[in-house]
Design a protein around this nucleic acid. Structure first.
Lengths: 163, 163
DNA sequence: GGTTCCCTACTCGGATAGAGTCTGTCCGAGTGTGCCAGG
DNA sequence: CCTGGCACACTCGGACAGACTCTATCCGAGTAGGGAACC
């Protein structure tokens, strides 16, 4: 049970886009900033577009940019967009199957499975923590030099066309 | 990012073993209780054995049983035993790579990545919640009829040899 | 010189292979029990 | 009747395929800008 690598990429990209605060930024440039697969990063950004976090503009001078303000984008938004909204723990109700479930009254299953409830409680704590932090919080927590360095690096690679 | 199905199986088995409170219970009998693959359930139980949650005794009248008391087994123990102790979010430090990392001073990376810190905080909330609940808590939360029903079902299938 | 048209280059977007992990299966090693033969 | 040995059946444990998702890649559709030709 590991999270996809795209989550890390997506978060770094959102943070970078917030710092740059420019017009459209090509996904290829973002990939060059972090030295990751340009095409696969593009796939991840597509999911963020579909989720309404980014907006993309085609053609020359095109790229992606944030739709909302950084303080209105939570980590949970990004995680859900990239990993799906499925629960970590999915209860398949095995308590109702086999010999254990065969001899049970239907009324007993009116209550949700205690195991599922317990796992769900833990998962809600995780989601709550994710929903409580925004891209703006990440910007505030990072050292101030990071923003300038990102802008400098981007300006440098933005000069070379079609890199 | 979904948890393996074995977690659900393992938790139900631990709960069942706690309710039965007998000597060794064959894994095949546990599989029959929930109508799951006997061989794969065996594989999951092996992991619980290696983690020190269960103990297994071979031979006739053998099987698995809980090592510790139900109040000393947390959900986190079971999850870690079955899913590994890897973190949900693994930081690969892409901030140090590519154009963004090339022009940075090494001192800047002394601080841990803010994204990793934020994700780790959420994950710790999840783990803390998991570690705060035990098998005994699940027993207390379940309706009292569940324990009797499990015992009845087990006694019934325990009669048939080698099922 | 101004305007219109076309062409090129660049961008995203979805369809297409490869790798790793999860799920499921099989067979062998080890052990306790029950039976049988001998005393 | 009691005791010792033996064979069997049952259990776990690790080695072996299939399926699915994640990762990575390629190519096509669409668009804006720039240049050339024409008025």
């Amino acid at each position: 049970m590991r999270m996809g690598e795209g989550v890390e990429w997506g978060l770094h990209c959102c943070l970078t886009l917030a710092w740059l605060d420019k017009g459209p930024v090509p996904s290829a440039k973002l990939a060059a900033l972090f030295d990751v697969s340009p095409t696969y990063l593009n796939k991840c950004l597509q999911r963020l577009v579909r989720a309404g976090i980014l907006i993309s503009t085609p053609g020359p001078r095109g790229g992606v940019q944030l739709v909302r303000a950084p303080e209105d984008i939570t980590l949970m938004d990004v995680v859900v967009a990239l990993e799906g909204r499925d629960a970590l723990f999915s209860c398949t109700e095995i308590r109702q199957q086999g010999a254990a479930g065969a001899e049970a009254s239907a009324r007993e299953f009116a209550h949700p499975c205690g195991i599922a409830t317990a796992m769900r409680r833990a998962e809600l704590a995780w989601r709550r923590e994710l929903a409580g932090q925004t891209i703006a919080d990440l910007m505030a927590a990072a050292p101030t030099s990071s923003a300038r360095r990102i802008r400098n690096s981007y300006d440098r690679i933005a000069a070379c066309p079609a890199r």
